[in-house]
Design a protein around this nucleic acid. Structure first.
Lengths: 340, 340
DNA sequence: CTGTTAGCGCCTTCAA
DNA sequence: TTGAAGGCGCTAACAG
């Protein structure tokens, strides 16, 4: 047996009109409920709708309306807890404002594909589009933004995308993390990071920490890594050369570093302190015990909805962008520096 | 300044035709590239397209084509690592087969909203819809399935949804977990679970484990909990009444139980073994060290794509559904049972 | 090869 | 209050 749906083509407003014995227009008016239809006809149409199991095609509707209550969400990747969390928060807030959210993921395709995806979102007459995909080419962003209200989230807009509103985590929030480890007496602190191309946002915080630590003479090293690297050699090298604390670009990296340290027999946080960044559940779970900086995902989502809503309603919008700070999460992977 | 997009309405095929000095159809044919257009006209159209920055409206296209290369994905929630992971894997595999994936999340709304969302997906002439949202009402599923090829993933189809193909984790895979703890000598094993309504799939595995353990006389208790419960009282009670191992409905619960045990001063796995279920990253990370059963998310996604693809192309489809097994992940939260 | 016509499913003037 | 007509953006069938 093929479970293919039966030929029964979804009924259209035309079918409804025919069965009710009225014109398409009357049927349409009855469906919309804006009034202007006689009670008898209204009833007839109502019955026809019921009988035919009619549901108006929202998409066709948008076609004439030139707009809709749908927001498009373009994500870099769905798998990552960070983007998943952001998307979830966004859907909630947007839902509260009466928007439906349609998501599409980039998966770091070639930029041409990103463009097509974004246009697909625009084609369905979305009221606006929110982009949470830092790797999309700025030109693509600008092209789409010229057609549809667009907001960037989780990434800086300036200077690559002048005039495009954005919400992003404030790199300066990393100060709390630095204060935390220096407060523990660490004086030889290393940074682990992906390349700027790999993740501009994560790089922003790393660059900021690098500058801060460097200025204070506390930076032992900045090691560039890749997502799938085995960190054992890196961690060992750092440990041997006197680094007592490692700050990572994100929580994954921190977990990888922790696992590497375990393999090397380095005790945490006795001999080495390690901190992550992002603090997205479940990374911030007490049972994991990771010290990290929790990025304000909910706040970012809220701000994004507010921005896009303002843009849609033609309100004044801060083009300078919004930077939000998170909060320090103290776990069991950082502790007092030990003299060696 | 309002960053609203300039009035410049996206240009249509009509504009292109006008500028090129040909008819809409010729322009359309040129765009489609199916041939049948003179080189001169082709060139003229090409130039007009360039000049107007024309991009065909994919949605309008689908409207006439009555179909598209878009798959709809309806998720229970975006935030959960499980669904995020599933979605990510699905997008990848679907992408390999040339599909674009549009996602919509349920967020456990009233079922009427689910229906509307599903219809929205159908309205855009998606080639098929994949539902990963166990809480959607079976009637809604059937209604939508009668209009568009539909596959269930991460949930059983039978008997609530007869005839609707599905892919789900095989509850019997839990055997490995049971063998693991009994192999460690545990003879008083408890289960922690959400209610069946909360999560039918998780309940399926719990019910299966309950039966198995009960038959072997090893079940100490089955405690019903809620996602946000504080588990300290539960864990303490179990521990005091002689339970030496706790198997949880999912990994979150396991982390919560671990945190509770830590608060109570119960050492893991010395005095108590705890295991999770799902094994989705980052729960399965070595640094977390959780013993769990890794559900085959990638395999499920692959199978889902295969099923929907078959359905779309009218191939024979196993209506019985597909059950997939995962693999045991041995961490540091389980160990030998200790005599007390 | 080309333009005309007729939809896809819906909404919105415009007269009546 | 109603229906006819036209359009949203595009494709496809049909004459030339």
């Amino acid at each position: 047996m093929t479970a293919m749906p039966p030929g029964r083509r979804p009924s259209t407003i035309r079918d409804v009109a025919a069965l009710a014995g009225v014109s398409k227009s009357t049927a349409s008016r009855a469906v919309l409920g804006h009034g202007g239809v006689s009670p008898e006809n209204l009833e007839k149409v109502r019955r026809a709708i019921e009988q035919l199991d009619f549901v108006p095609n929202q998409i066709a509707r948008n076609l004439t309306a030139r707009s809709s209550a749908i927001l498009g969400l373009f994500l870099r990747q769905t798998r990552s807890p960070f983007y998943a969390s952001l998307a979830g928060a966004f859907e909630e807030t947007a839902g509260d404002r009466g928007y439906e959210v349609m998501s599409l993921a980039s998966g770091d395709q070639p930029d041409e594909a990103n463009y097509r995806s974004l246009m697909l979102l625009a084609d369905m007459r979305t009221a606006g589009i929110v982009v949470a995909a830092p790797t999309v080419d700025p030109r693509t962003i600008r092209q789409v933004a010229s057609r549809v209200p667009l907001v960037l989230v989780g990434q800086m807009g300036q200077p690559a995308n002048p005039g495009v509103p954005f919400v992003a985590p404030d790199p300066r929030e990393a100060q709390a993390l630095i204060d935390h480890v220096t407060g523990y007496g660490h004086r030889s602190i290393a940074l682990l990071a992906y390349s700027p191309e790999q993740s501009p946002t994560q790089w922003a915080r790393i660059a900021w920490m690098r500058d801060e630590l460097d200025r204070a003479g506390l930076l032992s090293d900045l090691v560039m890594i890749n997502p799938d690297d085995n960190l054992a050699p890196v961690v060992e090298q750092l440990y041997r050369t006197g680094t007592t604390a490692i700050l990572c670009n994100n929580d994954w990296t921190a977990l990888d570093a922790l696992a590497a340290a375990a393999h090397l027999g380095i005790s945490i946080p006795g001999e080495l302190s390690i901190a992550g960044y992002d603090g997205i559940p479940p990374f911030d779970h007490e049972a994991v015990g990771l010290t990290t900086n929790r990025v304000p995902v909910n706040g970012m989502a809220d701000a994004a909805v507010r921005l896009i809503d303002d843009l849609i309603h033609d309100n004044h919008v801060e083009t300078g962008g919004i930077l939000l700070r998170g909060e320090l999460v103290v776990g069991r992977t950082t502790g007092p520096a030990q003299a060696r």
